[in-house]
């Protein structure tokens, strides 16, 4: 099969770029540990309210872990509990989230916190709160008529600025 000289160059160049690109993604994922949500814990979605940690949704300060706060969140048609999350600037936060009914999205707009919440599964993500501000949390998976009423707020508060 004849392949034109320029086409060979074109393909070699393209494939080399591709390999470089994939290596960068792999370093990010496996060396720096930047995996998207891959939560492995399962729960009984019909009884989440009585199962730890979802029996106590909210923002919890923790000690001795790789993160400073845990946000435990339960989604249901059409709301989040808690609906408002407040954490200090610079803190590392671990999110645990699940749903009581259909599939919901948990997206904090303009950040890379973006997970699917599926019945029976706990979605998890660790993120550093490195930019102060008020972020909109939206459900980005169609969940029924009230889909767009499903939102919340994440406040990343610069405590030093407040004290001043």
């Amino acid at each position: 099969m004849h392949i034109h000289k320029y086409e060979k160059w074109w393909l070699v160049f393209g494939c080399a770029t591709l390999v470089a690109f994939l290596v960068i993604l792999a370093i990010g994922a496996f060396h720096n540990g930047t995996h998207p949500n891959e939560g492995k814990i399962t729960v009984d979605y019909e009884n989440v309210d009585s199962i730890k940690p979802f029996d106590n949704p909210g923002v919890h300060k923790v000690e001795g872990k790789e993160w400073d706060y845990e946000v435990v969140l339960v989604a249901s048609a059409f709301s989040y509990n808690p609906n408002e999350i407040e954490v200090p600037l610079g803190s590392v936060v671990k999110f645990y989230a699940t749903t009581r009914d259909v599939i919901h999205g948990f997206e904090i707009a303009q950040t890379n916190i973006n997970m699917m919440l599926e019945p029976g599964y706990v979605s998890e993500y660790v993120a550093e709160m490195n930019k102060a501000g008020e972020y909109l949390i939206v459900c980005n998976e169609y969940c029924g008529t009230g889909h767009t009423y499903m939102y919340g707020t994440l406040k990343v508060v610069d405590e030093n600025a407040q004290n001043n």
């Binding site: 086409e7 074109w10 393909l11 393209g14 494939c15 591709l18 690109f21 994939l22 993604l25 792999a26 994922a29 496996f30 995996h35 998207p36 949500n37 891959e38 939560g39 492995k40 399962t42 973006n114 997970m115 699917m116 919440l117 599926e118 599964y121 706990v122 979605s123 998890e124």
Partner: peptide, 26 residues
């Protein structure tokens, strides 16, 4: 971004996804 699927296998499929770059360039 879904729970319940191992990151490693997601990554394997990401790599395979990018193989279509080759016939696309052709």
């Amino acid at each position: 971004t879904e729970p319940g699927i191992e990151g490693f296998w997601k990554f394997v499929q990401v790599v395979l996804t990018f193989f279509v770059v080759i016939p696309s360039l052709m």
